[in-house]
Computed example of a mutant assay.
Amino acid sequence: MGTARQTTAEKRPCIWMDAGLVARKYCNNHYDCHSCAFDKAMARKAQSSSNTNRDPAGETRTERILWPQRMQEKTWGQRRCRHTLSGRSTWRLCPYNYECFRCPYDQMLEDALEVAVPAPTGSVEGVEGYAVALDRFYHVGHTWVRVEDGGRVRVGLDDFAYRVFGTPDCFNLPLTGESLRASHAGFQFRRGSDQADVLAPITGTVRALNTRAAEKPFAARRDPYGDGWLMVVEPDNVRKDAKTLKDGDGVLGWIQQEHEMLLQLLNPGAPTYPDGGAVNDVVGHCTGVSWKDLQSAFLRT
């Protein structure tokens, strides 16, 4: 999510300011505390310092003050939901002690917000009939990653995968809040009686799902790099994971190699697709290769 410049009338207090822990700070990250650099810096500061108090027995104790703790100390009528602070919702009080990950209302709004955010596709090139969006990274298991404002990443299946496996009957996506581990099974799709695991391209926590694409896989197939994205992930270390992904001109050469390997599986010894045209729905049109062979060769599962 982008950080647009705010006018005086639009300024809204940062959670830390609303909690009374800082004198003056306005939110410039749309109350997306998960990806906020200021929130992370303040949390680190709270971890490195402490506030000394005395318990009823007179013994000294130390505690680290974070904004959720201070907000919990407020009277019930003052515990405003962060979505009320942001203006996304009308007046609402927090019933979950500011543990947003436990709040179904928070999850609903996060999913709706992420789906509403446009995902424009940059330059797209064709390699042997496969569309390749050049503004993202690719995992060898044919998922793509696009780094977006706020540090989160958007994930989906690439055009090559859809041309090989056709349109899935359904996706089995993880729940928001679940953790993904790079190059381990992250989600599944099914077609008929066959199901395939898909490797997660990045390590992190799922923050939103594209339920429209999950419910209507043909829409994901039609626009794999745009409205067909599948999930939004908050990465643990995007720079580290990106080193294992393919990008730039290297992607085009890799897709060419994948295409040549596919041709060898379908038509050993021949340099062309069996019907001479562009590859499209290998599973539905070619009987000479099994689902398991395609899954092992291209999804690496």
Rank of each mutant, 00 (worst) to 15 (best):
D106F: 14
L180R: 02
A119M: 00
E125S: 11
L109D: 11
A208Q: 09
W229A: 06
V124W: 04
L180K: 01
G186N: 02
H184L: 08
R152N: 11
L252V: 15
T203V: 08
V232N: 01
P217H: 12
M231T: 08
E215S: 14
E215A: 15
Y138T: 08
R222G: 13
L175D: 11
Y225A: 01
Y138S: 07
S123F: 11
R152E: 06
R191F: 03
T205N: 05
G250A: 13
E110W: 00
M108T: 13
F187L: 13
D135Q: 12
A119W: 01
D241W: 02
V147K: 13
R163N: 15
G226H: 08
D249W: 05
C170F: 03
D194Q: 13
F218A: 04
V117Y: 00
R146C: 07
P120H: 02
V117G: 00
G151I: 09
L109Y: 10
D197E: 14
N237S: 12
V232P: 00
A208R: 08
T205H: 05
M108N: 10
Q195T: 15
L252N: 10
E128S: 14
F171L: 00
F165G: 01
D249T: 13
G226A: 13
F137T: 09
D241G: 03
W229V: 09
V251C: 07
D159L: 02
L245S: 10
R146E: 13
V145G: 11
T211S: 03
A196P: 09
A208V: 06
T203A: 12
L173I: 08
E178R: 10
G186A: 10
K240H: 12
A214R: 15
V198M: 06
V115L: 04
E215W: 00
D111Q: 01
A214H: 13
T244R: 15
I202N: 05
P224Y: 03
E110G: 03
K240V: 09
S123R: 14
T143Q: 14
V132M: 10
E128A: 15
L173A: 07
V164P: 03
H139D: 15
V153D: 03
G192R: 09
D158W: 08
A131H: 13
N210M: 02
D241Q: 02
A219H: 10
G129S: 10
A182Q: 15
T143F: 09
F189Y: 07
D194T: 04
H142I: 07
L134I: 06
L199G: 07
S193I: 11
A185W: 04
G156K: 06
D106S: 06
V124Q: 06
A185K: 12
T205Q: 14
V206E: 09
R212H: 04
E125T: 03
F137W: 14
G129E: 06
Y130A: 08
Y225W: 05
P120M: 06
A219V: 06
P174K: 11
R136T: 10
D111H: 01
V127F: 03
G129Y: 07
P235L: 02
I202K: 02
T211I: 02
L230R: 05
K246Q: 10
Q188P: 03
Y138K: 03
T176M: 00
G141N: 08
V164E: 09
D159W: 04
V132G: 03
P235C: 06
G141A: 14
L230N: 02
A213S: 15
S123E: 14
L134Q: 14
G166P: 09
L157G: 12
T176D: 00
R152D: 10
S179P: 01
L245Q: 08
M108R: 07
